[in-house]
Design a binder for these strands. Sequence first.
DNA 1: TATCGTGACATTGGATACAATGTGGTGTAG
DNA 2: CTACACCACATTGTATCCAATGTCACGATA
Lengths: 225, 225
Amino acid sequence: MTLSQTQRDGTASERIADGLRQSILGGEYPPGSRIIQDDLSARYGGSRIPVREALHQLETEGLVRMVANTGAWVASLTMAECSEVYQTRERIEPLLLRFSAEHLTKETLEQLDDLANRMEQSAEVEEFLELDRQFHFATYRGSTTHTLGPLVARLWNATQPYRRAYTTLVGSRNRRIFHDEHHMLVTALYDGDLELAEQVLALHIRRTRLHLERHPELFDPTPTQ
Amino acid sequence: MTLSQTQRDGTASERIADGLRQSILGGEYPPGSRIIQDDLSARYGGSRIPVREALHQLETEGLVRMVANTGAWVASLTMAECSEVYQTRERIEPLLLRFSAEHLTKETLEQLDDLANRMEQSAEVEEFLELDRQFHFATYRGSTTHTLGPLVARLWNATQPYRRAYTTLVGSRNRRIFHDEHHMLVTALYDGDLELAEQVLALHIRRTRLHLERHPELFDPTPTQ
DNA sequence: TATCGTGACATTGGATACAATGTGGTGTAG
DNA sequence: CTACACCACATTGTATCCAATGTCACGATA
């Protein structure tokens, strides 16, 4: 994944951070789960030192919440916080797309088309989520950004559990507009119509946010629990 | 500072992170400076463990760059990277202002007017930079954001050395428009004209970026040195 | 019975010690 | 004189150990 936040080498803390991040994003640890440092050091081998560094890392990424002398939990968001992240995405992802669009290769455009089609066939939640992520990150593949790419990845990660919960909840109903927007985005990129592509993307994120906001039951009721 | 990134308690790693962050922002360590873990542990007391956690923290904030088994340096930006940060700010700070504006108190509005006036009198670079930061962050004081506030603070911090270099370079010439924009922003907030306030802020950031881009000599010529 | 204090236990934060890795300088060969 | 290899040193990464803090259950008292 080009937008990966850690292109660093193989220190133990990075390995653990990567592994734990994948576990959280994969839904293995749901929001609010307690994280015990000893458990992680046992699971990944090694002492608690790199585990703590990994937890600090994930905390600044917004995936983990740590309280001193008390412990660490998988971060959970209130609806207002999740909505805030989506509104932020709505403003910056079109910018990232702008940086990327003119450098997209023919191959990537074809992959985008393929991904959009495969998503329409996808019935299983995890596959759907993964294809969606791959699709959007592929549209950003042309960017050589220093800050913006990793930032967008962070915002995606922080809201991943709620996309999962929402997708699971609504099943495959009402996804028509969702897929239409993806195809519109691909077409706009093919045509080189950057202005349109930015607008489609902004509306795509916005509509998803509005749908999420119809389901307050998915979110943590209390802030910073 | 309401937008502080670390509202945590008093663990040693947080103390060190806060101290080092202030040192970097204050210009004590210029971009590219090597950071030795032992030096920090001697300066702040304690062992290298909390120092390392602080460095990891500042790395994800974009203030420090670490390479495994090699060392840590104060982050430096190329002009393209700095420009990217400014373009990101141009998109999200108006959003943060939107979240904040309707909750600004009368007292804060008066402080804003006062700060804008004091900046016009300010001749010394450090004071100017500090007042500028205080001014903008005061406009965001009404926001109760979870992600966006700290994010904006991070983007400010990452570009602070280059604002300092630019301000030092150009002296107090050509600041007229800068101050005018501040006063326009205050007026728009007084009037409750949110649309105008957003636009003024976006243009303010944009113009600053364009001015910075006239001085490539301020930046690191090679990416990720 | 409910509430508050108290103690043992679980867990985290940090210091010291050691291993692993990178760096820079010196010497030698070409 | 230059370039390369090698070795000592500096610095970072990690493990183990101990101290500090929070949690939870139990019991005493109102």
